[in-house]
Amino acid sequence: MIVGERKPLEEIIESLEGAEKVLVAGCGTCVAICMAGGEKEVGMLASELKMAAKLRDMKIEVSEATAQRQCDKEYLDTLKDDVKGKDVVISMACGIGVQYMALNYEPMRVVPAVNTDFLGANLDVGEWAEYCQSCGDCVLADTGGVCPIARCSKSLLNGPCGGSADGKCEIDPETECAWQLIYDRMKALGRLEKLTEIRPPRSWKTSRDGGPRRLVREDQKA
């Protein structure tokens, strides 16, 4: 899922400059799961804003609403009545939701309340780690289900590098060496031989190097 975290209150307040009627709009999917921008967090931010406004003599009226997803038009449409008449919408979705909200409710001023961090897995309660970099050309079949693009600090395709020591990466003793993980997994799978194959330099045009990406599924377009 997309992992994000709430911005500091002060930054959100600054982005509201000049606004009197504000909607805090949550997203019920990824950011709700990672406890950054779901219905519960909407209630919390709205409450924080109301209290801060009272203390700072700011005249703002805060209302709350949450859509199941802010990256789908059908769900965004459910916020129509809530958005109406507002000066600013504070979107608690990821960067995708914020932009899609701004596009679908043009010319409404939409500001973010969440920093979108990465695509990750939920390792433990309150703990997430980056597992995918959406490079557009998945190599997991050959790396024992451990992604060298997202989880190796250098995104090496033929690792490990000389910075790997005791299973950890040289950038940080807490960071696991992805290539050590790949080696261990491939060994357990009895497929170590696969690692002797050298991967040639790959094309990164499916990743961000090819510019903003777009996917069109003709079979789905009717």
Partner: peptide, 8 residues
Amino acid sequence: KMLEEIGL
């Protein structure tokens, strides 16, 4: 931490 940000 939230209270500190709010000003309480």
